[in-house]
Amino acid sequence: MEPLLNITGLTMDFGGIRALDHLDLSVQQGKIVALIGPNGAGKTTFFNCLTGIYKPTSGDLLLTPPGRETSRLNGLKPNRVTQHGLARTFQNIRLFPNMTVLENVMIGRHCRTRAKILGAIFRNRKTVQEEKEIVALSLSILKKIGLYDMHDEFAKNLPYGAQRRLEIARALATDPLLLLLDEPAAGMNPQETSELDELITAIRDDGLSILLIEHDMKLVMSLSDHIFVMDYGKKIAEGDPKSIRNNPEVIKAYLGEDIDDA
């Protein structure tokens, strides 16, 4: 089967520095795929290239929704990428702090709705209907994610773990095919992490594909169907959790070259 996301030869240069070096990576429909690697390996840069925040120097980013045409995502603006069905969260939380939890999720619906200025002024039936649907859908997402009771709180007043989950809720509201999570468990306590584990599995079971960057190896190993390992902008290994765990290249990348001399 054609993979949902197929990336070939992705390269990103900043001036003279090559942050990503001919990266090949693919995500199958309905799978959880993890991208791991030491700090500075280029994982977040990879996300930024994928979501249109940076424009990759070369390579192909191809998205093939099930039963539809393949489209090339290179050089699209971030909002266009999201419209194609990629939604992301951020490593350092970027919510809209002074908007309510519900509004944060409603923003996610923006790219799937139409109402224009005139609709907003005259509030015709279509606009009212659309607005109702936005609220209903956003609430159902909040329910799923466990933030329903907090929908009137300002996003900035949520506890840290809840903010991370709200970011996921907001991304889900864009109706993505592929959810990109940038270190979703960073800074979470074990309790929150295990809740997150359940949440991500539930999202996958709803039929979404997930690509995540994560440092929490326990989480990665328990969640992922497939793992890619990066170092210095290159892919150094890929495979299922078990094979990655025993891969000498990966161990070397994480622990350093000459472990015996240290």
Binding site: T51, P78, N79, T82, F90, R94, F96, I107, R170, A171
Partner: peptide, 19 residues
């Protein structure tokens, strides 16, 4: 809503599909 969101965080806004 999109205006308010834009005031709060432009990059997050774009990532949520707002032009």
């Amino acid at each position: 809503r999109a205006w308010f969101a834009l005031r709060e965080d432009e990059i997050a806004c774009q990532a949520m599909g707002i032009d």
